[in-house]
Nucleic acid binder design. Structure first.
Length: 255
DNA sequence: ATGGTAGAGGATCTA
């Protein structure tokens, strides 16, 4: 079983790349972030034609998340319960006994900004919800754009980024509290290439210079992490024409 | 050097 996540930065622009990626990689689940598509414009039929179901929640211009899957999901939820949020950043669905939660964590802008405060309120709300979800669903995968580089080795220049948004201690502590729930960062279960990242700024030729950050993650509950076989970043999409600024991450889990 | 690129939407906002 293959589970993947990809911040596509506009599904409209990236649709052909997404469909190509599905056809080549045949994931069971692909979580998308930053679809930037209202529900009525979601390319449901085009994705269906490649053999994938979709559940999605979107809004105009910003945010938007979706789960594409080979089988139909149930118990779909499109928000963090008991947390008021007009921004569409969460979708969860169940596939057999597998609970998949797709998230697009607020970016935070800068540590002295209002958006950073929103990010630091959003993450505990997610945490509280996940604590309950893990009781209900022992096989739980949390995938998405976390907008947090958990460690200095996840940052191309940790000195210049020290304390900045994506790397600040409060954000890293919030990430740590997700792990404290019993989740595992699947990427770090395996040997990985040095300087592995999932996002590179469009500017300053950041990808060519590998000035990136590892901010897209797949966290697995204990029942899944113990049967997880691999976790990889697929940098090939970032080399395409008109790429997303994020690369897909995927895990293989034994059936 | 506080820049720069991309997407949405149609001027800026977000990342």
């Amino acid at each position: 079983m293959k589970l993947a996540t990809w911040n596509v930065n506009s599904l409209k622009v990236r649709l052909s790349q997404v469909i190509d990626w599905l056809n080549v990689n045949q994931p069971d689940i692909l979580c998308l972030q930053e679809t930037k598509s209202q529900n009525e414009n979601f390319p449901y039929n085009e994705i269906m034609a490649s053999g994938y179901q979709s559940v999605f929640t979107g809004q105009k211009t910003y945010n938007g998340v979706a789960i594409l899957s080979k089988t139909i999901g149930t118990e779909t939820v499109t928000k963090i319960p008991n947390f008021d949020d007009v921004q569409k950043r969460v979708i969860a669905s169940t596939f057999g006994d597998l609970r998949v939660i797709c998230i697009y964590v607020p970016n935070g802008d800068a540590v002295d900004s209002e958006k950073y405060g929103y990010k630091l309120r959003w993450l505990p709300a997610l945490n509280d919800w996940l604590r309950n979800e893990l009781v209900t669903y022992p096989k739980l995968a949390l995938l998405g754009d976390f907008n947090i580089a958990p460690d200095d080795r996840d940052v191309y220049d940790p000195e210049s980024w020290e304390g900045k948004v994506l790397c600040s201690q409060p954000e890293r502590d919030a990430f740590g509290r997700l792990l404290d729930l019993g989740l595992t960062d699947s990427f770090r279960m395996f040997d990985q290439p040095e300087k592995s990242y999932t996002w590179w700024d469009y500017r300053m030729m950041a990808f060519r210079r590998n000035r990136g950050m590892r901010i897209d993650h797949i966290l697995l509950s204990n029942e899944l992490s113990k049967i997880c076989l691999s976790c990889q970043v697929d940098k090939t999409t970032r080399k395409l024409e008109r790429p997303s600024d994020h690369a897909p991450v995927f895990v293989e889990i034994s059936d």
